[in-house]
Design a protein around this nucleic acid. Structure first.
Lengths: 240, 240
DNA sequence: CAAAACAACTTGTATGTACAAGTAATAATC
DNA sequence: GATTATTACTTGTACATACAAGTTGTTTTG
């Protein structure tokens, strides 16, 4: 039996408060946060602590700071080092379309998941769904997803914000992606994959196994992606 | 005419000092830095400033902090969001070997480079070399590399530190990787690639085009990698 | 001798203060 | 009226201090 000491660190309180207001749109993208001194007054603390909180938000990609002006809310996720299909998200050159090919349903954990499950996850039921991403009406990515029902409620496909599961998590459930582990392989297309991506069996396919870690304790998102990279390669950028 | 005010920020001085000592091996990987108070005394400053410097080094992946113990120097690059072969670097399970198959030589820029060259690079001569990475005596990665001779001197293969070009840059030239852009494709092995990786022509290969941005202005490192991922997948992790 | 208490370290959080430096709108000057 | 200076904001750097909390080795205690 542990006392579970949650020592509410002040900088975390401030950080979470601002993060929540950004996520819920109270501090919209492009706007400026209250000045550091205003935040000090509101939380009865000093600039050192407020700056600490803002530094975290800066590091997490929620804001950017402008010397002499203020802290600006920015679009998060672009700066994340995520693997993305070239032309996806943010580009107008391509028409991207997401089709839910298997609606969320409760199943047994699939052994194809390339990462060891936690004990809690093993004990829990598993939510699964499958999507296909089209670019210019051509299927490019086949995506299987799993998560633990104990860690996150059942979410129906028609609740997805703009067809995106991540956006749903962020905007409706205040859950953010904190990191990911990925394994990449080049494999020949199986019969099923070939059919869904409309290519020949045996064609080279980029297979990505991914585990996303989230801000919600115990919640991991597992993915299994099959990408036809002949037209649209996968992109990955990172900075310091 | 500008006065070029270099206001030598104190935390930057400390940061650079420690970074340099890590890069040159004076603070070896696995060792602990002097305590924050010791650094304070040495630089006649306060812990706030020292911690600021250490925070930067933490963010850049040079050290990790252990509450109550100290700041430990870690192998940089693992924490970077870089793509690495599973089992490479840091693992003792596999015997990794790097063979320079084409020694550095000056050539024309190769059009296979997937990124647009800067004007300075186009005007400059180009240094090229090719390596093969073996795991347990099996070739796994075929790697082509290019850089601009104007941006970095000619480096011979026998100058490579532990066969690693990056380690050479870091330890002998104090140049660090600041970021990268990568494009991933799954392709069938060409005749040349199949031969060098000892696989069949047409087998699926993970093709990675990469541009590394460095701390040295004007210096980009271009790479073209062919990975046999059947035994050893490519790994990629990132955090916040 | 083993367990508990202690001391001496380490990093973590927080307060309070001061001044430097960048931004933007207003007021004074030419 | 256009330029310059002032002013009132903003964030950036740095000082000094205090105590909390984790680690490790030593000393005391049972």
């Amino acid at each position: 039996m542990k006392s579970e000491k949650t020592t509410t660190k002040k900088y975390l309180t401030i950080q979470d408060y601002i993060k929540k207001r950004i996520q819920t749109g109270k501090f919209p993208v492009g706007s400026y946060l209250p000045s550091e001194n205003e935040i000090c007054n509101r939380f009865k603390t000093t600039r050192t602590t407020v700056r600490r909180a803002l530094d975290e938000l800066l590091k997490e990609g929620f804001i950017e700071k402008e010397h002499g002006r203020g802290s600006k809310v920015i679009e998060r996720g672009n700066s994340l080092g995520l693997l993305t299909v070239k032309g996806f998200s943010g580009s107008i050159d391509y028409e991207v379309q997401t089709i839910v090919t298997t609606h969320p349903k409760i199943i047994k954990w699939d052994p194809v998941i390339a990462f060891p499950l936690t004990n809690d996850e093993k004990k829990s039921q598993c939510v699964y769904f499958q999507r296909v991403r089209n670019i210019n009406n051509l299927p490019v990515v086949l995506e299987n997803n799993w998560y633990s029902l104990d860690a996150l409620q059942f979410i129906k496909a028609d609740e997805f914000v703009e067809g995106s599961f991540f956006k749903t998590l962020s905007q409706k459930h205040l859950i953010e992606i904190m990191g990911a582990d990925q394994e990449l392989r080049s494999i020949p297309a199986s019969k099923e994959v070939a059919k869904k991506l409309q290519i020949k069996i045996g064609n080279p396919i980029l297979h990505i196994s991914v585990r996303f870690r989230t801000s919600k304790p115990g919640l991991n998102l597992y993915g299994d992606l099959y990408c036809n990279t002949t037209e649209y390669p996968i992109r990955n950028s990172f900075f310091l």
